[in-house]
Amino acid sequence: MHIFEGFLPSPWWQAWFVISIPVILYGMYKLNKLVSERREVVPLLAVAGAFIFVLSSLKLPSVTGSSSHPTGTGMAAILFGPAITAVLGTIVLLYQAIFLAHGGITTLGANAASMAIIGPLVAYMFYKAASKAGMNFYLNVFLATAIADWVTYVVTSLQLALAFPSASGGILGSFTAFAGIFATTQVPLAIMEGALTALIMKYVVQIKSDVLVDLNVLTNSTVAKLKEAMQ
């Protein structure tokens, strides 16, 4: 979820920049290394970023009637790893701020922290841990992206709560208020995004599984196993 321009007061928007910038710089370093080794990834990463942008501008069908958009970054984290997703996600957030007026420039640090860094990192760690434990690939993707989407909202609630602590209950008091509204309404949407991503992966395995092998998401043997299970 995007925090809009001017919403975070003075010490907080700088603080979130201080947190996100080192991570983004690390991501740029990783990206530079990858690009100098394999130059063909530049256009691939560019189209992947454009894909995240377009996916996140589609409206999810929703049960409650309220409309929301997938974040798309959980999927990117599974495909490219969290460091590169941080860079791609930040560029996407900048474009969303400038083209669609979602988010803002001073709040870019906070939005990058929640959507491009923490959410994808959680998705990636969950995905890696669960695939080591031998969880079914689709269930794993579903859970990882759903959790990432939801964590993003929890982090946003925390960011708002830190900036606007409640008089009686302090930070915890306003956190429960923000989380109560934003994080609970997001649960069905997180489930939707997880299901969407898992099904997209299912079709990708069916039609173009070599992409996933190239990206080291799956090995050839797991692809063969997944394909066998489908028939």
Partner: peptide, 12 residues
């Protein structure tokens, strides 16, 4: 590399 990706992303 970041600028390249940003520019190509913009086009796509």
């Amino acid at each position: 590399s970041v600028l390249e990706i940003a520019m190509m992303m913009y086009r796509y």
